[in-house]
Amino acid sequence: AEDTGVRVELAEEDNGRKSSIALRLWVEDPKKLKVKPKDNGAIEFTFDLEKETPEDVAQEMVESGFFHESDVKIVGKSIRDRVALIQWRRERICPG
C-alpha cells in the first residue's frame, strides 16, 4: 500500500469471524498531511467490514476534531488500504 503518512493496524487479532474489527490509527509522518493534527495519539476504533465505509469513519474523525477536513481523503485511503488487506487475508484463509 502507498505510504500515506497515516498508519492503520489491527488493534486485536483477527479471527476472521467477526464483521466488526478493532483498528488503531496514528500519524507516522505529519509532513504528508495538509494540516498537522493537534493530537499525536493513536486512535482506536471499531470498523464494521460489512456495513461501513472507510470514508465515513474518516469523516467522523474530522468531525471529532482529530484531523482537518482537507485531510479526510488521506485518512480514508489509509483505512481503506488496511481494510482491503484484512479482507484479502480473510478470503485467502477462508474463501467464500
Binding site: 498508519r7 499525536n40 495519539g41 493513536a42 482529530f66
Partner: peptide, 27 residues
Amino acid sequence: SVVTQVVHSAGRRFIVSPVPESRLKEQ
C-alpha cells in the same frame, strides 16, 4: 499513560492513547 475517549455523535467511540516511541517513524 493518559487515555482519552471521544464519542462521535454517530455513536462511534474513539479511544486515544499515546503512540509508543518505537512505532513512530524516524523524522
